[in-house]
Amino acid sequence: MKVRPNLDAVLTALADPDRRRAIELLGTAPRRAGELAEALGLPAPAMSRHLRMLKQSGLVEETHPDFDARVRIYTLKEGGMADLKLWLAETDKLWAAQLTAFKTHMEKTRK
Rank of each mutant, 00 (worst) to 15 (best):
A13K: 00
L42H: 04
A37H: 06
P30K: 13
L7C: 04
L54V: 01
R49P: 07
N6D: 14
A39K: 12
L54D: 06
R31V: 01
L36N: 03
L54N: 02
A46D: 14
R32L: 04
H50D: 11
A33G: 14
L14C: 09
A44D: 15
P45E: 05
L54P: 04
R21I: 05
L7M: 06
L26I: 00
D8I: 11
A22Q: 08
A22D: 10
R21D: 11
R49Q: 11
A37F: 07
R21Y: 11
D8N: 13
L26D: 01
L42N: 09
R49W: 06
A13Q: 00
R19C: 01
L25M: 08
Q56Y: 08
R52Y: 08
V10E: 02
L40T: 06
P17C: 03
E24D: 15
A39S: 14
T12R: 15
L11G: 00
R49G: 10
A22E: 06
T12L: 14
V10I: 11
A39T: 07
G27Q: 03
L25I: 09
L14H: 05
E24M: 11
R19S: 01
M53E: 15
A44S: 15
G41K: 04
M47C: 11
D16F: 07
D16Y: 06
R52W: 08
R31G: 05
D8F: 12
R49M: 07
L36T: 05
R20A: 10
T12H: 13
A9F: 10
H50A: 11
A37K: 07
K55W: 01
T28H: 15
E38R: 10
R20H: 09
E35C: 02
R21K: 14
S48V: 05
L42C: 04
A13N: 02
L40P: 12
R52N: 08
A39Q: 15
G41Q: 02
R32A: 06
E35F: 02
G41T: 00
H50C: 10
E24A: 14
R49Y: 04
A37Y: 07
R19Q: 01
D18K: 13
L7F: 06
G34W: 02
A22N: 04
A22I: 03
R49V: 12
D18W: 09
I23C: 13
V10C: 02
L7P: 09
A37D: 08
I23V: 15
A29D: 13
A39Y: 05
K55Q: 13
L14I: 02
G27W: 04
P17F: 01
A46Q: 15
N6S: 14
P45L: 00
R19N: 00
A37V: 03
P43W: 05
I23L: 10
A37I: 03
D18M: 09
R21M: 12
T12E: 15
L25D: 04
K55H: 07
R32Q: 13
I23Y: 11
E38I: 01
K55T: 07
A46L: 13
L51V: 00
E35K: 05
L40A: 01
L36M: 06
A29F: 08
